[in-house]
Every structure is written in C-alpha cells, then in structure tokens.
Simulated assay, not measured.
Amino acid sequence: MTNLPHILNWRRINARLTTSGQPTEEQLAEIQTLGVTQVVNLGPHHNKGALEDEPGTVASLGMSYVYIPVEFESPTEQNFEDFKAAIEGNPSAKIHVHCIYNARVSAFFYRYAKSGAIISEDAAFANMESIWRPGDDWAAFIENPDAKGQQNRYAGEDY
C-alpha cells in the first residue's frame, strides 16, 4: 500500500489502517485508490475545515462512512467504544481514520494500543508525539496523569 504524505499529518498504522488530518474530496479519492473501503471521521462536521458533504463524497467513491463526532474539549467513553467498534467491526477492511488535524485520532490509537490492540504502546505514543502532546482535556482520556494541568502542544510549534 502506498503512502500519501501530502495529506495533512498522514500516518500509516499498519497494512490495513491509515490516519490523517482532514482530507480534501480529491484526497479521499486518492485514499480510495489505496484499497480503503471504510472512512472513519472523528472530527465534528461543524469544525473549521470539515467538508461540506463528506458522507456523500465517501459514498460516491464506494466506501462506507462512520461518523463519530468527538468534541475536542471533551472526548467521551462512548466515543472510544464507538471507535473500537468501527476498527474491530470488519477486521478485513482497509480503514482510514481522520479528524481535522490527526490529534484526536492519534490519541485514540494511543489509548487503544495501551490495551494491547493493533500496535505497541511505544509505537502509538511515538505516532501521537509526532503530531502533538495532549494536555489537560485529554489527560484522563489517554490515561496519562502527567498531562493533567498541561497545555496541548503541537509538533513544530511548541516542542
């Protein structure tokens, strides 16, 4: 499977899972040519930069669309359960998971890896750290008490 590094914060988790920030309509078509059959979006449709009709674009490309709107300031346990269900629901599907910046997604994969799923915790942490260091809003969610009281920091900007 090819990589698409021109898509914002593109990352490959493994042969069946890729992640990124918000792809454009044209980039969704490129993602589909990689054999992706399902797109999971953790970015709320009201976020700046979200596509006007992402579900329609994804459907027109023959992929399924899973929408799990995670409010950045308050990720929930239900969001995480829905994420796990989307990843585990069709184990043979090639899946692309995105949000607006790949911050939510990388934090979700880090927490998922902490349970022993898909990739090592160290690899998931390195992936997340290459994008951002979650702070206070995310400390409990990613089960990192050291982040409590810290600001969210972004690679290339704050460290």
Rank of each mutant, 00 (worst) to 15 (best):
M1N: 11
T2Q: 15
N3E: 15
L4M: 09
L4G: 08
H6S: 13
H6R: 13
I7T: 07
L8Q: 12
N9V: 05
W10N: 00
W10K: 01
R11M: 13
N14F: 00
N14E: 05
A15R: 05
R16T: 10
L17A: 03
T18I: 11
T19P: 03
G21P: 09
Q22Y: 02
T24L: 04
Q27I: 06
I31N: 00
I31R: 00
T33E: 11
L34R: 09
G35V: 06
G35L: 04
G35D: 03
T37F: 04
T37W: 03
Q38F: 07
V39P: 04
G43Q: 08
P44V: 02
H45V: 11
H45S: 15
H46V: 12
N47D: 15
N47W: 12
N47Y: 12
K48R: 13
A50P: 08
L51F: 06
E52T: 14
E52F: 06
D53L: 11
E54D: 11
E54W: 10
T57M: 04
T57P: 01
L61I: 08
G62P: 06
M63W: 02
Y65I: 08
Y67E: 13
Y67W: 08
P69V: 09
V70M: 08
E71P: 00
E73F: 09
E73V: 07
S74N: 15
P75R: 04
P75H: 02
T76S: 14
E77I: 10
E77H: 12
Q78L: 14
F80H: 07
F80K: 03
E81W: 07
E81I: 13
D82A: 15
A85I: 06
I87S: 02
E88N: 12
G89R: 06
N90E: 15
N90Y: 08
S92I: 07
S92T: 13
S92K: 14
A93E: 11
A93S: 14
I95P: 11
H96A: 10
H98C: 07
I100Q: 13
Y101P: 00
Y101S: 13
N102C: 02
N102R: 02
N102Q: 07
N102D: 13
S106N: 04
S106Q: 05
F108H: 02
A113C: 08
S115Q: 14
S115C: 02
S115I: 01
G116E: 01
G116M: 03
A117K: 13
A117H: 10
I118M: 10
E121G: 01
D122T: 12
A123P: 00
A124Q: 01
F125M: 13
N127E: 15
N127Q: 15
M128T: 09
R133Y: 10
P134W: 00
W138R: 02
W138S: 00
A140D: 14
F141S: 03
F141H: 05
N144R: 15
N144P: 07
D146I: 07
A147N: 12
K148V: 13
Q151K: 15
Y154W: 14
A155L: 09
G156P: 03
E157Y: 08
E157A: 08
E157T: 09
E157W: 10
D158I: 04
Y159R: 14
